[in-house]
């Protein structure tokens, strides 16, 4: 369980980092919190010839308000800093609800918000949560910068729209409209274990309490975090009732996803979990949108 030999670069600025990235491309891996990369190097599953350590670049860690009422989170912001940030708590409680499910406090003290998204683990919590929140990701390379929306970012397991010379620098989460409720539910076999299924739901109601918009993102159900588009569409313009919720949950479990199995979870059980967790999340998000519950 020792990594294969590698070269090590620890630039002090983003520009310096981008220079190195453009030079090395495929032959270098970015090291953020190291909570996913280092274990896979120790297992020798990943054998990058070189590492680009971002931990010496202080200006990649921040949480800033966005002008419209959203937030911008620097890629190297530690999970625990996001978890304990009052502005995030107030504007996006769903992030806080998901945070405790990411491993354990020690790991959240090291793991980074940007690292989790760049890692694009289909079982990761933050890719799905930011997908439900309709985030966009700010990506830079030596040749310029671009923003990629969450709907286009996740291409496959551990695969994103980023090129090898690109760096994720920040994540922008847009403000939620009024009368919006959010909810997060997951099933894991024990505290800190990988989620068998997780659901982040964001529901906006119109003044007549009908669904004006809904985003339901699922994790551990496919090759990427999955947006349950049909489930959300089935709710459009409808009141949230046990029947409409059940129909949406059914769509999430049968139309939006075709989950596979693993040693912890058969496909049937996973479908079952999608049904119950989507229903629970919608019900809770709806109540919160109506202002009945925090």
């Amino acid at each position: 369980m020792k990594p294969a030999p590698f070269d090590y670069y620890a630039p002090a600025s983003v520009d310096e980092a981008l220079d190195i990235l453009s030079e090395k491309g495929y032959d270098i891996k970015v090291l953020a919190g190291g909570q996913s990369l280092v274990p896979s190097m120790n297992f020798r599953l990943a054998q990058p010839p070189a590492l680009l350590d971002l931990n010496n670049i202080p200006d990649l860690a921040y949480i800033k308000p966005a002008p419209d009422g959203g937030v911008v989170i620097g890629a190297m912001t530690r999970d625990s800093d996001v978890e304990h940030n009052p502005m995030v708590a107030e504007r996006f409680p769903v992030i806080l609800q998901a945070m405790p499910f990411i491993a354990h406090p020690q790991i959240r003290n090291r793991g980074t918000f940007g690292g989790a998204i760049a890692h694009a683990d289909p079982a990761g919590h933050l890719p799905a949560v930011t997908l439900a929140l309709n985030a966009r990701y700010h990506i830079r390379s030596k040749n310029g910068d671009r923003w990629v929306g969450c709907d286009e970012f996740f291409l496959g397991p551990f695969t994103t729209a980023m090129e090898p010379d690109e760096l994720l620098v920040e994540v922008e989460i847009p403000a939620l409209p009024a009368r919006t409720g959010t909810s997060y539910h997951q099933m894991a076999r024990q505290a800190g274990a990988q989620a068998l299924v997780g659901v982040a739901a964001v529901v906006t109601l119109d003044p007549g309490e009908r669904v004006a918009a809904a985003r339901i993102a699922l994790l551990s159900v496919g090759e990427t975090p999955v947006l349950a588009g049909r489930a959300a569409a089935s709710l459009a313009g409808k009141l949230l009732t046990p029947e409409t919720i059940e129909a949406a949950a059914e769509a999430a479990a049968t139309v939006d996803t075709d989950p596979g199995g693993d040693i912890h979870c058969s496909p049937e059980y996973r479908r079952h979990l999608i049904r119950v967790l989507v229903a629970k999340s919608l019900e809770e998000a709806g109540e919160r949108a109506r202002g009945k519950r925090g």
């Binding site: 076999r189 049937e268 059980y269 079952h272």
Partner: peptide, 11 residues
């Protein structure tokens, strides 16, 4: 047992 097995047994 596991949650998965218990689900299967109940099914």
């Amino acid at each position: 047992l596991s949650p998965n097995r218990l689900f299967q047994i109940v099914q």
